[in-house]
């Protein structure tokens, strides 16, 4: 009883700052003032683009990190949201383009992405480990070829171009500064939601299912239903990323959802680390930087070799990615100044 009282008092006095954590406050400050120091190129091509890929990888982190389900079809869900924005919104191809306003279009695209993800989940949750990877890769590949060959809906190889980013509240959201803050805002909402939900009943149950599905059944959980619902939530996040991605590019085509993109999501998530929802964003910054500057360093055609080597090195040194590396270093860094200096 006294234990409970103490915890309550502490939560009351040391308050919100402690709950949020000093790391988060520093990070938020850095991200908010980043536009003041970053060039337009660094703001959008690196900043906003990393946030978008971080979001897609976050949807994989939710499934893989908390649920133990590694899905390679999260890019497919993002792509479907992107296609919906093109088909039901506006495009310059004179195909479909129903001109729905953004406030109908975006929730619709995100919801469909969630439902598609749930359907993919329903197909794949009865498999485990490598088989989940195989089946979701097969789904991603199948969708790529379908989009490439279907002209009625997906306009085949060329896809859709000329997709505008909406303007509202007097802001043109594709301008560098607004677009950066838009991506940052969406990312923060998704990140905080995942972080919060990780300790909700659903989040705890998902992690318990990852660790011991048999016991979870024996205390009344429908393991399949929980996993499929996790896929639904992951699909919502991927859908948000898909909307931002199609606004970023102004176009969507089968190339948006091909196998190499699917693999990139996995590479980002693994390089960043699946231990914590910040991992995917760290991984995204890392990979986007390499993607952008690999041409200067090793030439365009060696990019895949470079990213492959970086991937191998990180996985070899730290299976939990950069995040795992940081967590192993942190105690040493913290202790260093405390050690007595030796002569």
């Amino acid at each position: 009883m006294s234990l409970v009282t103490v915890t309550r008092t502490q939560a009351g006095t040391s308050g919100i700052l402690d709950r949020i954590g000093i790391g988060h406050i520093a990070l938020a400050a850095a991200l908010l003032v980043y536009p003041a120091v970053a060039s337009e190129f660094f703001l959008v091509q690196i900043g906003a683009y990393s946030l978008i890929w971080g979001l897609i990888a976050l949807s994989l982190m939710l499934l893989g990190g908390y649920g133990g389900m590694v899905s390679l079809s999260q890019i497919t869900c993002a792509g479907i949201a992107a296609y919906i924005v093109a088909i039901f919104g506006t495009n310059s191809m004179n195909i479909h383009g129903f001109g729905w306003p953004w406030w109908v279009l975006v929730p619709f695209a995100v919801l469909i992405s969630g439902l598609v993800s749930a359907a993919i989940g329903a197909i794949s949750v009865r498999t485990e480990g490598i088989y989940t990877i195989m089946i979701t890769l097969a789904i991603a590949t199948a969708f790529f070829y379908f989009a490439q060959q279907n002209y009625v809906l997906f306009n085949g190889h060329s896809g859709y171009a000329g997709i505008p980013t909406p303007q509202f509240w007097g802001v043109h959201w594709r301008d560098p500064l607004p677009f950066y803050y838009l991506c940052l805002g969406v990312s923060v909402v998704a990140y905080v939601a995942v972080l919060y939900a990780a300790k909700s009943t659903f989040g705890l149950a998902l992690q318990a299912i990852r660790d011991n599905p048999r016991r979870m059944r024996a205390i009344g959980y429908d393991v399949t239903a929980h996993k499929v619902l996790a896929y639904f939530y992951a699909g919502l996040i991927a859908g948000l990323a898909g909307v931002l991605l199609v606004w970023f590019n102004g176009r969507v085509s089968p190339g948006t959802v091909d196998v190499s993109q699917a693999i990139d999501v996995l590479v980002i998530a693994v390089i960043g680390g699946l231990l914590h929802p910040i991992g995917p964003f760290i991984g995204a910054v890392f990979v986007v930087l390499i993607q952008t500057f690999a041409i200067d360093i090793v030439g365009a055609e060696r990019y895949n070799t470079l990213i492959g080597l970086v991937f191998l090195t990180i996985v070899f040194v730290s299976p939990d990615g950069i995040l795992g590396l940081w967590q192993r270093l942190k105690p040493h860094l913290a202790q260093a100044p405390l050690r007595p200096s030796r002569r």
Partner: peptide
Amino acid sequence: FARMSVLNSVFLACRGVSRNRFSL
């Protein structure tokens, strides 16, 4: 659940048979 706290384990067991098992 090796990586979970004792209280959360029992909490999950209580929630497993209630309607709140999907609560976010």
